[in-house]
Amino acid sequence: MKNKIKEQIQSGKLRVGDRVPSEKELTEKFHVSQITTKNALVGLAEEGIVERIKGRGTFVCESDLTASIRPTYEQEGLIGLILPSMKTKIEQEFVNYIEKYVSKNGHHLIIKITRESQFEEADAIEMFRKMDVKGMIIFPTEKETYNDAVLRLSLDKFPFVLIDRYMENILTYSVTSENKAGTQEAISYLLNKGHKHIGLISPIITNTVTDERAKGFENAFLKRGTTINKNLWLTLGFNDISQHKTPKLIKEFLISKPEMTAIFTMNAELAAYTHLAISSLKSDGCQEIELLTFDSPGISGVTFIKQDIEECSKKTVDLLLEQIEGIYEPKRIYVPVELKISENELSKMIPT
């Protein structure tokens, strides 16, 4: 324990004046008794490395350790971030917050975009390992099988965290939003409003994110004891999702399902395309369809499920640092989401 704290000081992660984790925090982190932790901190204080202040905590002092620190790029270390694209606001928010917490912990973030290619993903992992990064944060590509390069990281116990998606049958560190619970709440909200024929628009269900959201959709009907009509589901191949093709495909789908009164989309991009299709049908005098989606589409009047991107990012960086510091206890963390009802719908709910 003493050596770990010394390493953090030598690496610059803990600087002069910084508070060292408390006895309770260290006891939980290293799974030892509090007396062992106390002895470690007392030993560091006797060496003049830390100062223990009653009622305040333990703090890093000026010492030979801090005097020898050279705050160089190499010492602070590199963290690799691999993600499939940067085209959505959600992905941009993830990059922003991950960089914030990586930097706050004394490291530098480098980014590689795979454009949903497993070959690019494998190359990025190999490149980062050659660069001797301290660890990696990976958004896996949307494919039916996981990349062998990712599996090798797990077998080698190389520090990495999967974010947004995870490997279902392999124990790794991962952080994801409460996709199932959030979607179930959203569909229950529509059912409670009297919608019986609710559609779903989704990419091909190939990963844990779309799978969990689909299960959440189903669970809302099961909990209510209502029959679900999967003929109202439209799944799109990845090559079919574009601003030129998708709105037309969705419009054709909606026209073929006149009984549909509400529709749920798996993500903000599909919500935008669906909104265009609904607006086009509305101008043609067709029945209005209520739209609800996962993530904000930036469209007024649309109810959506809001992810806590900052909390997801913080927990991801925390789990990565845990591994870098020598602790390996794989875990899957789910971060709560919130149903954000549009102002238009809220105004209808307020009694006059």
Rank of each mutant, 00 (worst) to 15 (best):
K2H: 01
N3R: 04
E7G: 08
S11A: 12
G17N: 05
D18E: 04
E25D: 08
L26C: 03
K29H: 15
Q34S: 12
E46Q: 11
G48C: 04
I53M: 06
G55M: 08
L65K: 06
T66Y: 04
S68L: 01
I79M: 00
K87M: 10
V95A: 08
Y97L: 04
Y97V: 02
Y101D: 08
G106D: 09
H107R: 10
E126F: 01
F139E: 13
V150Q: 13
P159K: 05
N169V: 02
I170Y: 02
S174L: 00
T176S: 14
K180N: 10
T183D: 13
Q184I: 03
E185Q: 15
N192R: 01
H195K: 13
H195V: 13
I205L: 11
T206F: 13
G216D: 06
T235A: 01
I241N: 03
T246Q: 07
K248Q: 08
L249M: 08
L254I: 02
S256E: 13
S256T: 00
I263S: 06
M266E: 15
M266L: 15
N267L: 00
A272N: 12
S280M: 02
T293V: 07
G298M: 05
G298F: 08
I309Q: 02
E311L: 13
E311Y: 03
S313M: 03
K314L: 07
V317K: 06
L319N: 07
V335M: 01
N344K: 14
E345R: 15
